[in-house]
């Protein structure tokens, strides 16, 4: 089986991939490609099919239909060749709690057929690179969540993979560890590694990815750069918070006809967002006037460019984070 003729500079090519688990269609025919040396952000809520796609690309699952190539190797027919060029990291599952950081990395090196000396040297390098030198000889079970993720990422890099898959690398991390993880990932990408990153966090895709595909219910529903995706919902967003949550419906009623489409409401935070197209400043003034007339107090009134959150909502009709686990595949 030869790679598609247009593969050339593509590190990953996916064509018509389908996968069902019983009656649940996890992937309903997805296509995408990743240029060498770039970062693709695969964005979608829990159960959208992101993990299933990663599992197929990393040879852990066989697709029901469609084809996928990593560095021109077919993930089904040439699984062994694929395993030689990929790394997979995510939720620190490769780490053995009872082994030290150094032992964990050395073990992975030995499994990649480095000699003992090579494996030790590589482990030392990676521990330094990921700021884990001080904890190198401590059992991994004493590590913080952020340290574990970094160690896990280091483990996936032992054999210098050409293509790296990061499956929700910051899910469950506190904000500070998340930012640290982003820094680590940026450094990595600067070194030329092709990266496929799945995330449910829109800001993460925005920060790290060159290109983004949005997956929902097993289908790619949008693709492009973060800027292109933001451009697709057309124009700016007026946003404000109603400190008195009981007045939130009054606020909605007041600004109801102002925007394009229905206002978006986060009741918990008392936050209201309205898409206002290109009438930015005019709409801002009008919002102030109407809220004032209705006697609703507001805070943090602002005009901003749309975020990926807005995009996701516009594309799917539901917020990215609010979706419950529909499919756990």
């Amino acid at each position: 089986m030869t790679a598609p003729t247009n593969a050339g500079d593509k590190a990953i090519v996916v064509e018509g991939l389908r996968k069902s688990f019983g009656k649940v269609e996890a992937l309903r025919g997805i296509d995408f490609a990743v240029q060498r040396g770039t970062v693709l952000g695969v964005l979608g809520p829990n159960g959208a099919g992101k993990t299933t796609a990663v599992r197929i690309l990393t040879t852990l699952l066989q697709p029901d239909a469609g084809r996928a190539f990593v560095e021109d190797h077919d993930v089904v027919r040439e699984a062994a060749a694929v395993r030689n060029v990929i790394g997979l990291a995510g939720q620190s599952t490769a780490i053995v709690d009872e082994l030290t950081g150094h032992e964990n990395l050395e073990m992975v090196g030995r499994l990649h057929h480095l000699t003992r000396t090579q494996a030790r040297a590589r482990a030392g390098d990676l521990l330094a690179q990921f700021d884990l030198e001080d904890a190198a000889d401590r059992a991994a079970k004493t590590y913080s969540g952020g340290m574990l993720r970094r160690l896990d990422l280091a483990a996936s890099l032992v054999a210098h993979p050409a293509v790296l898959f990061l499956d929700e690398p910051t899910t469950g991390l506190d904000p500070r560890s998340r930012l640290a993880m982003w820094d680590v990932i940026r450094t990595l990408v600067a070194g030329g590694t092709t990266l496929l990153l799945t995330t449910q966090y829109l800001d993460e895709a925005d920060e790290l990815a060159d290109d983004i595909i949005v997956i929902d219910h097993g289908q790619v529903i949008a693709e492009g750069t973060a800027e292109e995706l933001k451009g697709r919902i057309g124009g700016d967003v007026v946003e404000f918070t109603v400190p008195d949550r009981s007045r939130i419906d009054d606020a909605i009623a007041a600004i109801d006809t102002l925007g394009e489409g229905d206002p978006v409401l986060d009741r918990h935070r008392g936050q209201v967002a309205i898409r206002v197209g290109s009438r930015g400043s005019e709409a801002l003034v009008e919002t102030v006037r109407r809220l004032d007339a209705a006697g609703v107090e507001s805070a943090g009134l602002s005009l901003r460019r749309p975020s990926l959150d807005d995009v996701f909502l516009a594309l799917t009709g539901h917020a990215a984070a609010a979706v419950a686990d529909e499919v756990t595949a």
């Binding site: 395993r83 997979l88 939720q91 599952t93 992975v108």
Partner: peptide, 17 residues
């Protein structure tokens, strides 16, 4: 259950290991 075996299977190790 934890996915440890998955991570091992992604490495180019012998199937029997």
């Amino acid at each position: 259950q934890k996915g440890v075996i998955d991570r091992l299977r992604v490495m180019p190790i012998a199937r029997s290991a």
